[in-house]
Structure formats: C-alpha cells, structure tokens
C-alpha cells in the first residue's frame, strides 16, 4: 500500500501537489529560485526532508534545478503545471467537448447534404 502510494506520487503532478509541504515549496519558489537550505529554513523542515520533496517535484516536472557556482538553485517549471492547469480549466474543457460534438454533428450534416 505504501509502495503504491509512493509510485503514484512520483509519476504525476496531481499526486505530487497533494502533499501540503510540497505545495508550500511551490509557493516559495513563485518568488524566484532558491537553494534547498533556504527552502528548508523558511519551511521549518530539515534539509533531507526538503531535498526529498524537491526530488519528487523534479520527477514530475514541477521544479527544475540549475548549478550556480557552488549552489544548486531550484525554480518552478511551468511546463509541469500545464496538465494540472488544463485539467482545472473547466471553461476550455466545456468548449473542447462541445467542439467534439460539433465536429460529429457537422460530419453527419455534411453526409446528409451529399446524399440529398
């Protein structure tokens, strides 16, 4: 059971952001890139714990890392949020699904006109 939960968490962004501390990390990173030491300090967690969360967030593409001198800086990766954003985007979904039906309907209409 625990193993299943871990597997799911690292395979998609939805599960990754279900964990409150990981959401806190994302909120902090909105302000710009930060090293793990600062993130851990601001969130009152130990560094290994913060590193573990960052690893999960990187695996689902929500966070990226780059080397800057001796430091590793973590930042938001908006691409990973896209599937979440699109899923949330109810208005887009409403219209994309309406246009699916429109497409089907127009194909029927086209065929009916050709048969006339």
């Amino acid at each position: 059971m625990a193993a299943m939960a871990r597997a799911a968490t690292t395979s998609d962004a939805f599960n990754a952001i279900a964990e409150p501390q990981r959401r806190d990390i994302l909120v902090l990173l909105r302000g710009g890139e930060r090293p793990v030491t600062e993130l851990a300090r601001d969130l009152g967690m130990r560094q290994p714990q913060a590193s573990k969360h960052l690893r999960v967030l990187r695996e689902v593409g929500l966070v990226r890392v780059r080397e800057a001198g001796k430091q590793r800086l973590y930042g938001l990766d908006a691409r990973g949020l896209r599937p979440v954003h699109e899923w949330v985007g109810g208005f887009e979904r409403f219209w994309n699904e309406s246009f699916d039906r429109l497409d089907t309907y127009v194909q029927d209409l086209k065929q009916a006109r050709q048969e006339e």
């Binding site: 994302l26 909105r30 938001l76 908006a78 949020l81 979440v84 954003h85």
Partner: peptide, 8 residues
C-alpha cells in the same frame, strides 16, 4: 494551481 500555473 491555476494561480500557480499563471505565475509560473
């Protein structure tokens, strides 16, 4: 997450 995606 909508807010996050926008900021991101």
């Amino acid at each position: 997450v909508t807010d996050l995606a926008r900021k991101g």
